[in-house]
């Protein structure tokens, strides 16, 4: 079975084509275009316009790169939520149009669950992980329990990527700020204490962000502040992930989301996993960030397990929570 998936929950529009090979995911193509605001954060309408502008060409190029005939596509899937309304609507409209014109079934999928399933689908040994999903808007610790993907811990205010971006903007860095903060932090030497805010398995970043900005305002070297910001926030993330692993008694950890590209975070989570005797997995970079292949793969997995979606049910949901998905494809 071959599925074409369209992702567009936030700043990226992606189209991927995947194929099922003995229950594992073979990515045939996975093209992404990212909207970059001239200043400030994402403007939802501008992002949606950006997606609308590129979507047709991306579908064409993605099918071409996959080296399949468009008629060989068996299923069309799209990111139904959570995300920015205008972006979701643009993508849903394109997916519906494609499904109708190809006369192939349509399926809407949960973006957060897709981040987890692409790990299970593309990494052989990864079967039952705790996912640390770290992106701009989302920071969640997700694992399968009692028939659903449940959120064991999450941010109580902003996502970690958003926290890094907000801090980066005060330094005048370009969006996305994470990679630049990572570079700066490598030259940091002095640890400046920052609020370490863990509540059960939940975390909060706003106090830490304010304190970090305060250090900059007081004239501390930017490198030291970046270093301290990363060390503190990533230690919090690693700690809640470990708590979820202990709580669920799972032996695998998977990283996902754009911030999973950060080398320091990878090392910290891997060190934690190794000390617990657990396995550590991280998908290839283009499968960590928002992408169409993960949407295609989850659509395929759901369809194969018997899930069907009518046109009426394909309405988008900006607040589509991870634990709202009935997981029909796992025991």
């Amino acid at each position: 079975m071959i599925c074409l998936g369209i992702e567009g929950t936030a700043h990226s529009i992606g189209v991927g084509v995947v194929k099922d090979v003995k229950g594992k995911c073979k990515v045939l193509s996975n093209l992404i275009k990212t909207y970059k605001p001239e200043k400030g954060g994402i403007h939802p309408r501008e992002a949606a316009n950006h997606h609308g502008l590129h979507i047709a060409a991306l579908i064409r190029d993605s099918v071409q790169q996959a080296a399949v005939n468009i008629s060989a596509v068996d299923l069309v899937s799209f990111s139904q939520g959570p995300g920015l309304g205008p972006c979701l609507r643009t993508v849903a409209t394109a997916a519906r149009a494609l499904s109708l014109s190809l006369e192939k079934p349509l399926i809407g999928v949960n973006h957060c669950v897709a981040h987890l399933e692409i790990g299970r689908g593309t990494i052989h040994e990864c079967t039952d992980p705790v996912l640390l999903y770290v992106s701009g808007a989302n920071t969640q610790v997700i694992a399968f329990a009692e028939g659903k993907y449940r959120v064991f811990g999450e941010t109580l205010d902003v996502g970690i990527g958003n926290c890094l971006d907000k801090f980066g903007r005060t330094l005048g860095l370009e969006f996305p700020c994470g990679p630049r903060i990572e570079q700066l932090s490598e030259r940091g030497t002095l640890y400046l204490p920052l609020p370490y805010s863990i509540k059960g398995m939940d975390i909060a970043f706003s106090g830490l962000l304010t304190s970090a900005e305060e250090y900059v305002r007081k004239g501390h070297p930017v490198e030291d502040v970046c270093y301290s910001l990363q060390e503190t926030s990533f230690a919090m993330l690693t700690e809640v992930t470990e708590r979820a692993m202990a709580h669920t008694e799972k032996q695998e950890v998977l990283l996902g989301g754009g911030v999973a590209s950060n080398q320091r975070l990878r090392i910290m989570v891997e060190t934690m996993a190794t000390a617990r005797g657990a396995s550590f997995f991280v998908p290839r970079k283009e499968l960590c960030v928002d992408n169409g292949a993960m949407i295609a793969w989850l659509g395929l997995v759901m369809y194969a397990s018997g899930v069907r979606m009518s046109l009426d049910e394909s309405v988008i949901n900006q607040r589509f929570r991870t634990d709202m998905v009935e997981v029909t494809w796992r025991d």
Binding site: A145, R150, K199, G200
Partner: peptide, 17 residues
């Protein structure tokens, strides 16, 4: 409130039935 919310989430994830 946050203290009780942690327990509420624990019930949802571990004793959802």
């Amino acid at each position: 409130g946050v203290d009780l919310h942690v327990l509420m989430e624990a019930f949802e994830s571990t004793h959802s039935k």
